[in-house]
């Protein structure tokens, strides 16, 4: 999908050890495979099935998604701020595509 677009919200700064909230959203139809088109044929499943958050290459959080996740998925979770660097967010599509977004943080 050409118009896939991810948004992330991460505090720009944090103190070491602080627990921060990360919010993410991505534009995706999350086609469940359970709908029919106008001709009555089943529309094939095409969802994001996995989400992974890393900081400087180290995995912090991972989630498996099924067909019941709403279209244009929103997800928020927490991490402990340990070091400055760049968070990478990756959404894995059924079709093999991987969509990325990133955000940097300065930890003092």
């Amino acid at each position: 999908m050409a118009d896939v677009k991810a948004r992330v919200k991460v505090p720009a700064t944090a103190t070491k050890g602080e627990i921060i909230e990360i919010k993410t959203a991505i534009a995706h139809a999350m086609e469940s495979g359970q709908r029919k088109d106008k001709e009555g044929k089943a529309i094939p499943r095409k969802i994001i099935n996995k989400f992974v958050c890393t900081l400087n290459g180290k995995e912090l959080f991972r989630s498996d998604w099924y067909t019941a996740v709403s279209a244009n998925p929103y997800l928020s979770f927490f991490v402990r701020a340990t070091e400055s660097g760049t968070y990478d967010f990756a959404w894995y599509d059924d079709d093999g595509s991987v969509y990325h977004a990133s955000a940097s943080i300065a930890v003092s």
């Binding site: 677009k5 948004r7 919200k9 919010k23 534009a27 244009n72």
Partner: peptide
Amino acid sequence: DFQNPGMVWVEA
């Protein structure tokens, strides 16, 4: 504004 899914279209 972050939770509003319509904001994706605003940004686009």
